[in-house]
Amino acid sequence: MSRSLIDIRDLSTTEIEELIRTAEDIIADPKKYSEICHGKKLATLFFEPSTRTRLSFEAAMYELGGQVLSMSNAASSSAAKGESVADTAKTVSCYADIIAMRHPKEGAPLVAAMNASIPVINAGDGGHNHPTQTLADLCTISREKGRLDNLTVGLCGDLKFGRTVHSLIEALSRYTGIKFVLISPVELKLPSYVKKDVIQAHGLEYSQTTDLEAVMPELDILYMTRVQRERFFNEEDYLRLKDSYILTPEKLKGAKDDLCIMHPLPRVNEISVAIDDDPRACYFKQVLNGKYMRMALIMKLLEIEV
């Protein structure tokens, strides 16, 4: 079984820092990397549509000089014919050198990794894991702040179902001096097992509030998330809550000058477009960092050295 990335915890903090260093080196000297994966093929197997994640992986492979085999309609091809994830993984192992898989079922990329003879990257499995999003987040924090420790990190929006938030908490909890500020409506609070088994288990502090503006001055990072319609049973609750945590220039008044505003994108209206030109807005940098981290990850899993 090749080395795969299924869960952000599969990587040690040292490995994450190495990936960030590689990403920074790619940014500094992209030419050095432009042919490094020549002759290698990435298969993108997307069993549910996620155009932006797929494009990020494909752009990453092309910028490394590699090629892409794309099965963007995986759901309508192999799975529809009743092929198992295991068989798909074994088949694609014959054609490609590395797989990026997105699947609506939780654990499907792990099944692929257990059966493929090539590395598998989890590109999102339902509401479960999405480790390359977390790599993009960590790279952004590291580049903007120069460190991954001693930060007050505000997480705002849907903290109950938001997998990006849970993985980011998992990843940041391994560093010292992190303080989490959890900002959400009562209905969408962070599940208690994340607070207990992750934050407190690492001896870290957190505070919980429904008032974004009140905690704004403390924050070094503000991570906004989308409140998804499908999380609600009735439309009324959704409409009432979705607008509760919209970031506007007014709400930013008390914020630090070097606050780093993040969002996993796509946004609906959680961040007013009026903030896009604010130098503290980092969400499009996150997209770019995501591509560089995917490049660094592909190189690592293919064991390609510069």
Binding site: S84, V85, K105, E106, G107, D125, G126, G127, H128
Partner: peptide, 8 residues
Amino acid sequence: PRCITSTE
């Protein structure tokens, strides 16, 4: 019901 073992 969202687990891969539910369909495979």
